Simulated scan of single mutants.
Amino acid sequence: MRKAPRQARSRVTVEAIVEAGARILSEHGWAEFTTNKVAEAAGVSVGSLYQYFPDKLSLIEAIRRRHLDDCLAIMRRSGEGQKSVERFVDDLVRDMFAAHSLNPGLHRVLLDEAPSFDATRDPHSAFEAEYIGHYAAAVEAYRASAEGASNRVMAMILSDVMDGVIHNAARRGMLGSVELKQELVRLLCTYLAASDR
Score class of each variant (00 low, 15 high):
L111V: 07
T120K: 10
R87D: 06
D163M: 15
N103P: 02
A194G: 07
E86I: 07
L158R: 14
S116Y: 11
A136S: 06
L92C: 13
D112G: 04
N168T: 08
E113L: 05
R121H: 11
Y131G: 02
A155H: 03
L188S: 10
W30K: 12
A141H: 08
V38K: 12
L68D: 15
K56T: 07
E179L: 05
E40I: 02
R9G: 05
K56M: 13
S177E: 12
R66Q: 13
I60S: 11
I63C: 13
S116D: 13
V165R: 03
F117W: 10
S78A: 14
H67M: 09
E61I: 04
K3N: 03
S78L: 08
Y135L: 05
P5A: 11
R143Y: 00
E19Y: 02
T120G: 15
A129E: 10
I60Y: 12
R64L: 03
P123C: 01
R11K: 10
E179D: 12
F88S: 06
A62F: 04
G173A: 06
H67Q: 15
A169Y: 08
S116I: 08
A98W: 06
L188T: 12
S10N: 09
A126G: 02
Y191Q: 14
A20Y: 05
D69W: 04
A169S: 10
S10I: 00
P104M: 03
R172E: 14
Y50V: 04
D69A: 14
P5D: 07
E40V: 06
Y142L: 04
S145P: 00
R197P: 08
I74E: 11
M96G: 01
E130C: 03
F53V: 13
L72R: 12
K37A: 13
A98F: 10
A22R: 05
H67S: 06
